[in-house]
């Protein structure tokens, strides 16, 4: 039996097939080559684009790299002043920013990983089909809200709410830890930015873990239930246990997202210039420092130092992306903003 008989073909295909002739064949060979060439060229362009990004960022950062070296990572002076009378004028170090980036991202993960995994569990294993069909897309819509709007909401709604509830509660309960120092009543800080980041990372984690859990074979879940396990025991013992590496990979991808966010952090972190023990104090991150100072930069060295900050972010992102791939293989893909 030929293929033609057992496959329903659109009429166009058959027509094209029938009229394929000699001259046509020559055109076809050309066409094939052009199609392949264009597709291959575009793909090559994607690879070249990454190389170009690295090249532009590194060359932009070069003056600062050669001036401050690797010490840029931990030096805490960031002084754009050009007047010669000021000590350390036009000296840059990203220590405060690296600290702020790491700490805000850590806060974001501490909040969003358990919540995101819980939502993944809910969407894939607990909700009935219809409800999951509503809740799932809504959680994904959260990822579609632009960061500038999340940030605006963070300034006006979230930060004041935190300042009057969570912050004092944390201080009262855990105030003996320096990180939960006396919260200020006004002003924004690292903790506010961390919570905003948590909200932005949450839908990513929820979406990845949902797919992860949904792909755990049904036989395994049934096997656990048939042994007299409750649903939670089944989830913990089989679903979460067998997807550990995937959850770690999802966490790394969430981390990458948190590390690189600039706008919403700029709006909520309070643009501090020093490292404070308390999370309720202001701070700054690599991304938000770029967003704040790039346009108003007063010297070439300041611009180069901001490029240097971008380079650090770039390296962090590459490490995270490669790390996630190594841990989970291709089973976990970074998902787009939605779907």
């Amino acid at each position: 039996m030929s293929r033609r008989e057992n496959t329903a073909l659109p009429r166009e295909v058959v027509e094209i097939g029938v009229v394929a002739g000699g001259l046509r064949r020559m055109v076809d060979r050309m066409g094939d080559r052009v199609a392949f060439g264009a597709a291959a060229l575009a793909s090559l362009a994607a690879v070249a684009l990454i190389a170009l990004v690295i090249d532009r960022v590194v060359s932009g950062a070069m003056p600062s790299i050669s001036r401050f070296g690797i010490g840029f990572l931990w030096q805490t002076t960031w002084n754009p002043s050009l007047s010669s009378g000021v000590r350390d004028s036009n000296v840059y170090g990203a220590g405060v920013l690296v600290y702020g980036t790491v700490v805000t991202s850590a806060i974001a993960l501490v909040i969003s990983v358990p919540l995101g995994v819980a939502i993944g569990v809910y969407l894939s294993l607990l909700s009935s089909g219809r409800l999951a069909g509503v809740v799932g897309p809504l959680v994904e819509l959260l990822a579609a809200v632009p960061s500038v709007i999340v940030g605006l909401w963070g300034i006006v709604v979230l930060a004041p709410a935190l300042h009057s509830t969570i912050d004092p509660a944390l201080h009262a309960a855990l105030g003996w830890l320096p990180i939960f120092g006396k919260p200020g009543t006004t002003g924004l800080g690292i903790f506010d930015a961390g919570v905003v980041l948590a909200i932005m990372v949450l839908p990513i984690l929820a979406a990845i873990t949902r797919d992860l859990f949904a792909n755990v074979p049904r036989e395994l879940k049934d096997g656990a239930l048939a042994l007299g396990a409750t649903r939670w025991e089944m989830i913990r013992g089989v679903v979460l246990d067998s997807t550990r590496s995937g959850i770690v990979a999802a966490t790394i991808l969430g981390l990458a997202r948190a590390l690189g966010e600039a706008i919403a952090v700029t709006q909520t972190i309070g643009a501090g210039t020093a490292i404070h023990a308390s999370l309720f104090a202001s701070g700054d991150t690599l991304g938000s420092r770029i967003a704040e100072q790039f346009i108003g930069a007063v010297s070439k060295l300041q611009i180069a130092s901001l490029f240097y900050c971008a380079l650090i972010l770039l390296v962090m992102e590459f490490l995270a992306s490669i790390g996630a791939q190594l841990i989970a293989g291709r089973s976990v893909r970074v998902r787009g903003a939605v779907i």
Binding site: I50, V53, R56, V57, G60, A256, G260, E317, S321
Partner: peptide, 20 residues
């Protein structure tokens, strides 16, 4: 390359195009 592009912080994209 697509994975890396997808994960590229958009502020870095901005700084890249600035440099470009």
């Amino acid at each position: 390359a697509l994975d890396l592009l997808n994960g590229l912080p958009t502020i870095v994209t901005g700084i890249f195009v600035f440099g470009l």
